[in-house]
Amino acid sequence: MFRDRLDAAKQLAQRLEHLKGHNPLILAIPRGGVPMGRHLADALEGELDVVLVRKIRAPGSPEFAIGAVSEDGSLTLDDAASHFPSDAVEREVDHQRQLLKERRARYGPVRPPIPPEGRVVVVVDDGSATGATMEAALKTLSGRPKRLIAAMGVGSPSAVARLEAAADEVACLEAPQGFMGVGQFYADFGQVEEEEVVELLSRSSG
């Protein structure tokens, strides 16, 4: 159990301390991953940016993720997506792609995208239930960084196994068999607001 996202980020920074001195690029998945990414960038003497991906929600059951879409348009759908009408899934995908465009327009003025080519890159989020969102982020970056690391506070064992095939390294602090949801492992799992994300991105490391 973590006190909050900062507590998890501090523990991740210890796990990834070997990256200090390599100027790692920390790519946070908004919004929950950004406070963690800010701490990692400061602690590891790296740079902070965001990688934009959105969950694809099941039609009629928005709390249930059936895949993810990234800013470059890459789409990852789980097998469960086939259980829903294809036109409803397509509408949800289009909706999330539009939200990604709006989010980039909001973040761009304070944090223009930092190229990941040749860098040690850490993609960070507060947790992963299915692995779909993190996997979509990793696929967007595939082949570009020198080393690609997925980092999170907690994940289901199946999500961690899924991500091991997409990253050079997976740094997951907790992967319990009794995983039910990311929020159950944080005493404080309050929503991160857009204003906080913009403020954290506007700050320089250090």
Rank of each mutant, 00 (worst) to 15 (best):
H18M: 03
A187H: 15
I29F: 04
A159L: 04
G108S: 14
H22R: 15
S82M: 05
D188L: 06
V170S: 11
D125L: 05
G153C: 04
G21F: 07
T133R: 09
I26P: 15
L75G: 08
E17F: 12
A43I: 00
L77D: 02
F189K: 11
G155F: 06
D79V: 01
G190N: 11
G33P: 09
A88L: 14
M1Y: 13
A171F: 11
L141R: 11
L77N: 09
D79Q: 13
G127M: 01
E174N: 12
H95Q: 08
K55N: 10
Q96H: 12
S156N: 10
P35T: 02
V192Q: 10
A151I: 01
L75T: 08
I26Y: 08
P24F: 03
F185L: 07
L6C: 05
L201H: 13
P116Q: 08
Y107V: 00
S86M: 09
E45Y: 14
S61R: 15
S70P: 12
I56Q: 08
G206P: 10
F2Q: 05
P115K: 11
A9W: 00
L48Y: 12
K55V: 00
S61A: 15
P62E: 05
L44A: 08
Q191K: 14
G118N: 12
G73E: 05
P59T: 01
T76G: 09
K139F: 02
Y107S: 03
H18C: 05
S158Y: 13
H18V: 02
R106V: 00
K139I: 00
L16G: 04
G21V: 01
V182F: 08
P113Q: 11
G60D: 06
D72F: 08
A80L: 08
G178E: 12
G178F: 07
R97T: 02
E194Y: 12
P35M: 01
D42P: 15
V93E: 08
G190I: 02
R15L: 01
A165V: 04
S158I: 06
I114E: 03
R15E: 04
I29M: 08
